[in-house]
Amino acid sequence: MIVKETACKECGVIVNIPKKINFSQYRCPRCNALLYRRGQPFSYIITMAVTALLLFVPLTFLPILDLDIMGLQSSSTLFEALWMVYKDGFYFIAFVAMMTGLLIPVIMLILLLFILVPLKHGYRPEKVSLYYRLYEKMSDWGMAEVYLISIIVSMVKLHGMGTLHIGLGFYMFIFFFITFYITTVWFNPDDIWLDDAVDN
């Protein structure tokens, strides 16, 4: 049996993962850290990533919430809310929230397409290691789900102030997050380094 030697990233123990794995995941024998998870075919991941990106487009202009106080109306999109924080002078907050809540998930999807589309078409992109390194660095900082839950919290906070209507943008954001999440779960980084990755 061919064996791939690696080390556990969390406890440092040397482990040998059988190369022809027919189980879906492999955990560290000492600390139970997830060391290997089988990925889906690249074509599935590409489809899901494109779906997520398409769902993101309407988010830029669809309102997530409408608030009605005594006949006065106010609505906001995901970007407009952060734009108001920027206008209040809190540039750093607006920047970090914009990056983590919205842009990092999108950049991650684009990087994934940069890596996988050429591999799917039979050649390894020149900068694959750079793209992957960026993807890996960003993966801890994507916070779309936190933004999503914060919308629900603000709904509860605001419902005493006036009449609240949930906009289409909110539902779009839920679907965007679901497709984004599925994309990242399906992608197994180990697959892009395999010798036969180009035929995958």
Binding site: L65, S74, S76, A81, V85, D88, A94, S154
Partner: peptide, 8 residues
């Protein structure tokens, strides 16, 4: 951010 964006 959402409250600031919405309550104007």
């Amino acid at each position: 951010a959402l409250m600031v964006g919405l309550v104007q």
